[in-house]
Design a protein around this nucleic acid. Sequence first.
DNA 1: AAAATATTTGGAAACGGTTCATTGACCGGC
DNA 2: GCCGGTCAATGAACCGTTTCCAAATATTTT
Lengths: 341, 341
Amino acid sequence: MVRKAGREFTIRDVARSAEVAVGTVSRVLNDHPSVTRDVRERVQRAITSLGYERNAVAQSMRSARTHMIACAIRDFDIPGYVSYVKEAERIFRAADYTFLLASTANDKAVELSLLRKFAQRRVDGVMMTISDESDPELIAAVEQAKMPLVLIDREMIQSVDRVAADHRSGARQATDYLLSLGHRRIALFVGDPHAHPSRSRIEGYGDAFRAAGLEPDPAMIRDHSLSNEFTFRETSALMQRPDPPTAIFVAGIDMLAGAMRALKAAGLAIGRDVSVVSGGDSDLAELSTPAITALQWDRAQMGRHAAQMLLDRVTGRTTEPPRCVRVPVSLVVRESCRPPQ
Amino acid sequence: MVRKAGREFTIRDVARSAEVAVGTVSRVLNDHPSVTRDVRERVQRAITSLGYERNAVAQSMRSARTHMIACAIRDFDIPGYVSYVKEAERIFRAADYTFLLASTANDKAVELSLLRKFAQRRVDGVMMTISDESDPELIAAVEQAKMPLVLIDREMIQSVDRVAADHRSGARQATDYLLSLGHRRIALFVGDPHAHPSRSRIEGYGDAFRAAGLEPDPAMIRDHSLSNEFTFRETSALMQRPDPPTAIFVAGIDMLAGAMRALKAAGLAIGRDVSVVSGGDSDLAELSTPAITALQWDRAQMGRHAAQMLLDRVTGRTTEPPRCVRVPVSLVVRESCRPPQ
DNA sequence: AAAATATTTGGAAACGGTTCATTGACCGGC
DNA sequence: GCCGGTCAATGAACCGTTTCCAAATATTTT
């Protein structure tokens, strides 16, 4: 049999070649029990001899399931995020789902447009972060999504499943530790306070101060952007004040590099001149000299939870009300903090 | 109009609601010129009032184009790779292509199975790495792929498009530099020599030795795996020899952390006790104390090239024979290398 | 004003699977 | 020898678009 120009073989070609009906080929492909050994083998032979590959598009068209899961995160190259995603992809692939990935640059318009695209593609489920958990348009888009959806590291929208690290407790631990060393002017860097991680970190920071009978100084808090440039600029500015902080808590997951660059440029030594705690652990934190004290949580577990929750919805195994899984955060004490001079 | 239970609105519902034919709705959706303003507006109104979302699956079915690009890389959480991917995704999204991502763990079976999956999904193009450029099965699978395909950081398979960094020149520069400082026992760590980057690095390393009238010592070369554990173990072993290397060139893109961990554990100071050059630049390399001398190339550009080449094939803009784009590599000298004592 | 041409709209076929009602074959029991 | 029941296999309908031909209408030309 010769393939028609530009056309791939279809189930009909297989049927003709094996001298059976198309329905029979479909049943062979789907391991339906009521096919005799003889016919099954004839069909298998036809399939291999033609090099037939089943068309997933046609399959999705009829079955109204695409076996695709979409994921949208702030940015690909944030090692912290990618750890979640890596584990999730592994689980989805094992469950025979294809993984679709996009970055949003933390931009609401991109987030909304991706949600529409995912809907048009009829993906079976969505895993994502959003830039602003209190934006009505984003909330509406998330709540009215036609497919199951899991939010990553977001907490506020109660009507969908969520997986989040316990950043409030993490920030509390970090701040408690710095306060216990005697620090009082502790700079706090977080990202956009419209999303849960930043808000929770600010809360945890405040919790620690208040538990010590102190009031946090708003001038020490910088909440604006997650970019490295921002962290660099603000660290530089803060260290030039007449009363610079004696400790810096760079709470964003990928802010450490920016702060270190600024301190290096200013000729300040971590540990000796200023104490530093990083809000996310990394090779950089672990292997710096001195090694940086950091907050840490099981990122693979977070990805696993998100993937599993989503799969449970997609396959209909769960119809329970939406829930929020919270992953614990702990402080790894290294060498970057000393009592202030 | 009420949506039937469990069914979404279709183009037919829109047609009925706007009192036009389905073909007309399709023409409105596709901005076909021959639709009068009046009809167009009536259809638009029907679309918004029903909340209709076009079904991309059906569209693909009919048009035989999915507007999806698949990408398979060794691992998500290798910052070096993710930089390529990030830029590529941006370009594909801008061109209205959806990006499909999978990790292969550098495993041939996974690579083959993903290629089949991509074929079944009828993606319009594929961007990937493969674990072994000389494996006949992989070569066959890549060459016989029904869709355009671009290999990332692979060079050998001439019959498809490729984008690769010039690792040979990079390794030559790094080794030249270490030799010029007076080092002779220079350890070289690379990944699996079945793929271009490792092979090229070994060649570049040898080039430098031979250009200096020396012969490289095979006992100083470790080519096996890209894992951090491997690098850790082998670094530890090598430094315990009676004649340990005076310099280490960790040429793999994500091997630096493993080597640094081993040196730290052995109580050896980089720069003073042993010189180090990293085969890939990173925050870790830049911000370590001392800062690590590293090879560097424009990763975004690599992703851009790959995406553009693929788009040119997918859209039929190019029918030229396959080519290989090579991205230059340069050495950034920092503080991690000194003459041997 | 009629003819020729261009433009807009309608409606059916096609894409490649899955599903389901129907047919046909075979077997055992009375 | 007939009937009922089970199991395999058939083939048409269907999923939601796009595309193409034909019909209807508008516009220009003669």
